[in-house]
């Protein structure tokens, strides 16, 4: 299991290739990459704040929980903080398993929990304003399906 919390950009394709390499027991690798979206055409940058220390612990606990629920060969989570440009990758998860059902479900679970249980806060910066992104009720509700 690999958890990385970093300011630096990452290459999702290269990360995925490295993650998927050399695994004889794996038949399925699923990945998700979250990217900075400019919803209203006015975003200058996205600023992500986090809670150093708690962030790594919370993500590791979520990944551990995924590994108890599904038979996974490995899990990768990368999440950035700091100022991010439109189109830049924010985070990625990858899961490796013998079969695709476990890999898909675990990646979905990881994303739901990273959204509302990992201590990150997003701020949208436009020419006019700086606005903290509000958590959505739907994101909290999404946890109930697990």
């Amino acid at each position: 299991m690999t958890v990385r919390v970093q300011a630096d950009p990452f290459d999702a394709g290269a990360e995925l290739n490295r993650f998927a390499q050399g695994r004889g027991d794996v038949g399925a690798v699923v990945s998700f990459t979250g990217v900075v979206r400019d919803t209203h055409g006015s975003l200058r940058e996205m600023l992500i704040e986090h809670y150093p220390g708690m962030t790594e612990k919370a993500i590791s606990a979520i990944a551990d929980e995924a590994r108890t629920r599904w038979d996974l060969a490995d899990v990768l989570v990368i999440h950035r903080y700091g100022p991010l440009a439109v189109g830049a990758p924010i985070m990625m998860v990858a899961t490796a398993a013998a079969h695709r059902a476990a890999a898909f479900a675990a990646a979905d679970f990881l994303m739901d929990y990273l959204k509302s249980r990992a201590p990150f806060w997003k701020k949208e910066i436009t020419a006019e304003a700086e606005t903290w992104v509000a958590a959505k009720d739907a994101d909290e509700d999404a946890l109930k399906r697990w």
């Binding site: 809670y51 985070m91 249980r117 997003k122 509000a134 958590a135 909290e140």
Partner: peptide, 26 residues
């Protein structure tokens, strides 16, 4: 101490309390 908790939780032995809005990771 870096674990999500409740507002009625006791503070005995706690070294660090953090307050923040609902998280928006992912």
């Amino acid at each position: 101490d870096q674990e999500l908790s409740d507002f009625d939780s006791p503070l005995a032995g706690v070294r660090e309390v953090a307050f923040f809005p609902p998280m928006t990771g992912g």
